[in-house]
Amino acid sequence: MIEILLIVCAPLIGGLIYGLERKMRARMQNRQGPPLLQPFYDMWKLIDKQAFIINPYHTILGMMHFISLWMVVAFIILGENLLYVIFLHLLSSIFLILAGFSVKSIYSHIGSNRELLAILAYEPILIMLGVGFFILNGSFDISVIRENSPALASLFLLFLAFLMLIPIKLKKSPFDASEAHQEIVGGVEIEFSGVFFEFLYMAKWLEYIFIYLLLMLFAGDNILLGTGLFAIVFFLVNLVDNATARIKMSHLLKIVLGIGLTLGMCNLIGLSYV
């Protein structure tokens, strides 16, 4: 029952995290910042706007992105197969990319293309993460992973690699080239408006939930450790966001793939020796 409640509320929790983050970022930049509930104000406002459509495919694909992302979050909460969750998440990203390519807008295309390249950067690391958990627990099932003791120590290198892909997924500096407001005005989301933009806006919240739920997996059955991890990583990500510029896609690929794969590799090899 509690799971159902969590699944239904997932976007709302994500919205709260997003609001907290905006507030925190403003404080780090010496500003007052928007109210905590600002994301929800934006949400209600977007419902009330006149909706524009470029073409039906574009809009429907955007919605599919949102729904499938919600599915991903639901499956994590329900404790399904981790590998399947990762692939379903890939599917949801692909919906978004297809949406971006389905309009005749150059910024949308560039954004989609960068999103594709970003997938190239983070997907192998996610798969390795899944395999790491599999080696530790003998199962891909998230419910099993949650029942076991914390995996943070044995998967520490993979954890570091995972930290690198949080900014990619959450569109934070230095790895936010796929959204890049100053270059391509938001990339994929540029042609969405009104209530249809809402889906993308809320999908961003779900992305928070997805990434932090994966993070919690490192803590296993230790809820305290999980909360601590969340707090530390949340702070760290924002700190890095405020201390770096946006780097280019080619650099992103080199850095994330180079460092992430090496770390993951070392960890997997180490695991099989122990």
């Binding site: 910042g33 600002q38 005005v185 540029i190």
Partner: peptide, 21 residues
């Protein structure tokens, strides 16, 4: 910028007409 900080009011400079009010 920080001194006047329009974002207090929820203002975001979107730069995109389709998402602006």
């Amino acid at each position: 910028a920080p001194k006047y900080d329009l974002e207090r009011f929820g203002v975001v400079n979107t730069g995109n007409p389709k998402q602006s009010d």
